[in-house]
Nucleic acid binder design. Structure first.
Lengths: 334, 334
DNA sequence: CTGAAAGCGCTTACAG
DNA sequence: CTGAAAGCGCTTACAG
């Protein structure tokens, strides 16, 4: 493989000149630059990543810390990963997947060895031991999601609280006062998954403030279980005029459940929901919803990390991406 | 940050001795090993990844070449990625996500710079320009899926042809002679996605050989479209006694479609399918099916790559992972 | 605008 | 069983 020395020899210049021509950190005369470019093309030179990393203490790699749950179905996760990778590439970074069962340990591993220039934490929980691990590292980190008490690391996420308020308000404005709230399984709340809490708390509080009756039902983890739970909730609350669904699985079951009960939307029941846009693209779900794209969140997280790598100090950033409600006419005015 | 020199000084030995204690490539006396371990612990030493890569020409990183389609819904993809990462970690490798729109270019980038020790190509198509890119690289590559004409690179995949034969045979044995085959959208076939072709061709051929009538219907890409297409297929083939579904979206629509038509399974219609196990774990799909786990495929691909990195020569491996049929009683004997 | 040289932190023949 | 030294391929003060 051609090294920078081969290029220098071929072009008849010093290695430092080639290096500077490559990085642009020092002016190089057009003539020599020309010769260098030719040498690079002919010798098919590509800089050795390890050597570069050693010399600069920068690997141009971001570590993406993904909670390790191969058996769990997370529709938006892959999209997140791809968008993170796309944005990172555009900013000159590669992405290393860190899926260690022990997330904090994984962070320590890739930061201590200087493998990465920074880490991106996906699916941050309210109490998340990965935060301490990042704080301890030389390299910066950015959180997707919010950890309680953290005011040292940059964070971004969709504004789930706003989304919850928005959907409740939408139902309220249409005259609904009795609503069934289909939430994620209770296990998810027990695991302190931040977005689930933020959404639920906002929904519960808004409903309270507006004087609405809200029946919260937690979908089970097992799909067959969940089907029954949701059905029971429908049967037990005949007076409810609307359904607010934050549970992708339950959402997919819904058409069947409603068909079984001869309930049509929105004549007999109004339905609103929140789910990743990709989910809506795949399944036939014609409900008014906050149909969130992971794109702005993922892109912003990567941008913040790149900025933080370049500028380790400076004020901590905490960003909420505003949700957008798509009205598909699945709610009826009472 | 502590370097190997710091450790050597602290332990009162040469750097080479520390290096050998770490790698185990040379015997080290228990006494000095003890002192070295203590020094490592106290100084919190972790070897610098870049320096190691430069010295050894090995990065301990595998490049995972993922087709870039952030808007597309691929239920099993994330599971694949996680399983690849898990297996790689167990073998001492980290995983770099390569999601460049130009897959071949991405391979060139990460191999030429010596960033990775080898590449794993996911979702290999029948005609895949990434294969040539791997062939051109210094580092080895393993394919998940089969590329036509490739006999130089190791390949693994689920045996989709066997799965197709298995499901057709199952219906045949139960007396079914008229079957509707719900396949993926035609776009997928146009893109030369290997597993879709292999499954379809096996289904079509088996049905032919067994003298069965098979009506192939391609689900549309748009979910609303698909819903209609599948419904039309049911209405247009009242004599069909069974349904063979290789289309996750259509599968989720099915309960609703059948309910609308007052058809129950398996009394009025027998149903068999094939989908990733995770999909079945999420949705309530009580159908007899080849419920494939990405685990053996992903694990084997990583293993093969690790072996190939260690042993660049040696016979090319081509492995088909046998599918498993799970009988859930959704087929009736005629 | 350009070069010679030191240094980044490892590994690995070579020598003992 | 251990050490001194060269080398991996870059970058970056330093000097001109």
């Amino acid at each position: 493989m051609a090294t920078i020395g081969d290029v220098a020899d071929y072009a008849g210049v010093a290695r430092s000149t080639v290096s500077h021509a490559l990085s642009g950190k020092r002016p190089v005369s057009p003539a020599t630059r020309e010769r260098i470019n030719e040498a690079i093309a002919i010798l098919q030179f590509t800089a050795n990543a390890g050597a570069k990393a050693l010399a600069t203490s920068k690997s141009s790699i971001m570590g993406l810390i993904v909670p390790f749950t191969p058996e769990e179905f997370a529709p938006a996760t892959m999209q997140y990963v791809l968008l993170v990778s796309e944005t990172a590439r555009n900013l000159g970074y590669d992405v290393l997947m860190v899926t260690d069962v022990d997330g904090a340990g994984g962070i320590a591993r890739v930061t201590e060895s200087n493998l990465v220039d920074g880490v991106l934490l996906m699916d941050v929980k309210r109490h998340d031991d990965r935060v301490a691990s990042v704080l301890h590292a030389r390299q910066p980190g950015v959180l997707v999601g919010f950890a309680e008490g953290n005011d040292l690391l940059d964070s971004v996420d969709l504004d789930f609280a706003a989304a919850g308020r928005m959907l409740v308000r939408h139902l309220y404005d249409f005259g609904h006062r009795h609503v069934i709230f289909l939430a994620f399984p209770e296990e998810l709340f027990a695991q302190n998954v931040g977005f689930a809490w933020r959404f639920r708390d906002a929904v519960v509080r808004s409903a309270e403030e507006l004087g609405m009756t809200l029946v919260t039902v937690y979908g089970g983890t097992d799909p067959v279980d969940r089907y029954r739970v949701v059905g029971d909730a429908l049967d037990a609350n005949p007076d409810a005029t609307a359904l607010l669904v934050h549970n992708e699985g339950a959402l997919v079951d819904l058409p069947m459940l409603l068909a079984e009960r001869r309930l049509s939307v929105p004549q007999d029941l109004s339905v609103v929901s929140i789910f990743p846009d990709q989910f809506g693209a795949m399944f036939s779900l014609p409900y008014t919803a906050v149909e969130a794209s992971p794109r702005p969140v993922a892109a912003r997280a990567v941008e913040l990390l790149a900025l933080r790598i370049a500028e380790p100090d400076g004020p901590v950033v905490r960003e909420l991406i505003p949700p957008v409600l798509v009205d598909r006419g699945s709610t009826r005015a009472l």
